[in-house]
């Protein structure tokens, strides 16, 4: 059913992504692609993968942004680079679900994960139009829509070691910038991290109540301006003595 669940899901599974520690290595995106091209959503096709017009379905894309005032150095603060992985946020008010004409797109009542049932998808693309986050990508080979499943075929998979029962992107992150858990549990890692670091939702003005939270970069330490390296200290020291001698 493409109506949203009437009562709030028992669990609200999602991700916390730490923009302070993300180094932009794309390991999350690559591991996502690797796992999902063989898993629930298999395959995630590529067209012309070794040619000039490479294109393909990715459920996770890592953007890099330059932030800070344009005249960053004038303001006494340097700008900084922030890497920003973008994937499905599993919104509570998911517009991609309600627009679906076939019932292929749905939000699970047990854990709030938003999924596409591929056998029902007619490939009308309306869900991808409805999502402001660009979380859904069209599979031109299969004629159906693909999206992040929060790795439902990993997180409940009893054939995997317990530490492995996390989304592929979380397992792959070498900087531990990605965290997976239940936002309904106030003591979960994702809830405590969000509270401690002031985790934000994306496009809050749209009111879609995304589940995932992003932790903004911590304020950076003051960047030295090199002033103390311009001249020898006036009082004493070997360099000071040399400076005095040569200044005569």
């Amino acid at each position: 059913m493409t109506s949203l669940p009437k009562q709030a899901p028992a669990k609200r599974l999602g991700l916390v992504i730490d923009l302070d520690t993300c180094v932009g290595c794309h390991a999350c995106a690559v591991n996502c692609k690797e796992w999902n091209t063989t898993g629930y959503h298999a395959p995630l096709p590529d067209s012309d993968p070794y040619g000039k017009d490479v294109d393909g379905v990715w459920l996770n894309r890592v953007h890099g942004y330059e932030t800070g005032p344009a005249a960053g150095l004038d303001s006494g603060k340097a700008g900084r680079t922030v890497y920003f992985p973008r994937s499905c946020l599993h919104c509570e008010e998911a517009p991609c679900v309600t627009v679906c004409p076939t019932g292929a797109s749905y939000k699970r009542t047990e854990d709030g994960i938003v999924l596409v049932e591929e056998d029902k998808c007619i490939g009308c693309k309306l869900c991808s139009w409805a999502c402001p986050y660009g979380a859904r990508e069209f599979d031109t080979d299969g004629g159906v829509m693909k999206k992040c499943t929060l790795c439902i075929d990993r997180i409940y998979n009893e054939n995997l070691e317990e530490v492995e029962r996390q989304p592929a992107c979380v397992n792959a992150c070498p900087a531990k910038a990605r965290h997976f858990g239940d936002f309904n549990d106030p003591d979960s890692n994702v809830s405590t991290l969000t509270a401690a670091r002031g985790g934000v939702e994306l496009l809050p003005e749209m009111g879609l109540k995304p589940t995932n939270r992003y932790l903004p970069p911590r304020p950076s330490a003051t960047v030295g301006d090199g002033a103390s390296l311009q001249d020898a200290p006036a009082a004493g020291g070997f360099l000071g003595w040399i400076d005095q001698v040569l200044s005569r």
């Binding site: 923009l19 017009d53 990715w58 932030t67 069209f138 934000v200 939702e201 992003y214």
Partner: peptide, 21 residues
């Protein structure tokens, strides 16, 4: 991007090298 606190935000490294869907 939730980066309002850092001032202006401009794209630097694109996530892919060709136009995607």
């Amino acid at each position: 991007t939730g980066l309002s606190g850092l001032g202006s935000v401009r794209p630097l490294d694109p996530p892919h090298v060709q136009d995607n869907y």
